[in-house]
């Protein structure tokens, strides 16, 4: 399948030519096909946030290029404007971008900027609110009266309402409690399944994302260190720890078991897979 979005030798240098000069992203070749759900992992300063801000032309590459279906997103101002609607970017703590008088108007801001018709906008607002699990009755409230979790979801809806082909989310669950995290991830999965677009989900927490992602991309020092299916990436426990990432505790437990001679599969990262692997070891049921 031809890639939906790709970067070619993408490099970004902050404050080039000043004492603050800092290479954030270096020669990154990346491509994603339609329908992929990609977890982008890396610690702070690994370049992952800088990288994704190139995908919709918010940041311009120092060198290299970003292509959406083969077209350079920085080709012209008109192209960049069009790309903003096709590559939706949800920043960290997106609730800080809310500004309208009602939730409805805030979600409509993106589609309005895309100069869509009134009915189309209304339909998209309802659809987006539904995707993030916001009740229709909340749409006429002020976004500032919502709870923390609801604000977060309203802000995500504001990007989803543009119906982007590529949805990029930067730490969308930061600061939420386990239930709030779970809800957001489920909503995003639902959106992904329904629309069939590509999702790029940036996070520090591999445990969170590994259950849902079809592919993991690990950033380190401005470059891609690992790229593959989750079970593939989690085989590299030592490398992940050397980069400074926290490996899921189930994976750690299994790497200890393997080192002590138990024949369990490598790259196990979820509780369910762990249970299955152990049961297989015992040949089915327990001893109770």
């Amino acid at each position: 399948m031809s890639p939906l979005i790709e970067t070619k030798k993408l490099t970004h240098i902050y404050s080039e030519g000043t004492p603050f000069e800092h290479v954030a992203v270096r020669d990154v070749d990346f491509s994603a096909a339609r329908g992929e759900f990609i977890g982008i992992i890396g610690h702070t300063g690994s370049g992952k946030s800088t990288f994704v801000q190139h995908l919709n032309g918010i940041l311009k590459p120092t060198s290299g290029s970003v292509l959406l279906e083969g077209e350079d997103v920085n080709g012209s101002a008109a192209v960049t404007r069009r790309v903003r609607g096709r590559v939706g970017l949800v920043f960290q703590y997106p609730e800080y971008q809310l500004f309208e008088e009602t939730v409805r108007a805030d979600i409509a801001y993106g589609p309005k900027n895309m100069k869509l018709g009134k009915e189309e906008i209304e339909q998209r607002v309802l659809e987006a609110a539904d995707f993030v699990g916001l009740e229709a009755s909340l749409l006429d409230h002020s976004p500032f009266d919502l709870s923390g979790g609801q604000k977060r979801r309203a802000a995500i809806a504001g990007v989803i309402a543009m119906r982007p082909d590529v949805l990029v989310l930067d730490e969308p669950t930061a600061g939420l409690d386990p239930r709030g995290r779970e809800e957001i991830i489920r909503n995003i999965c639902r959106y992904h399944d329904a629309v069939g677009g590509t999702v790029l989900y940036i996070t520090h927490s591999m445990e969170d994302i590994a259950r849902f992602a079809t592919r993991l991309v690990v950033f380190n020092r401005g470059q891609i260190a690992l790229d593959g299916a989750p079970e593939e990436v989690f085989r590299h426990v030592e490398e992940l720890e050397r980069i400074g990432l926290t490996v899921p505790s189930v994976t750690k437990v299994f790497s200890i078991l393997r080192s002590r001679g138990l024949e369990v599969a490598e790259g196990i990262y979820t509780v369910d897979a762990a249970v299955e692997a152990l049961l297989r070891l015992k040949g089915g049921g327990g001893n109770a």
Partner: peptide, 15 residues
């Protein structure tokens, strides 16, 4: 913060 909010709104098509 201004920088961040500006980028977030640009991502929603603000000019």
């Amino acid at each position: 913060e201004t920088d961040k909010i500006m980028n977030a709104q640009k991502a929603r098509g603000a000019e």
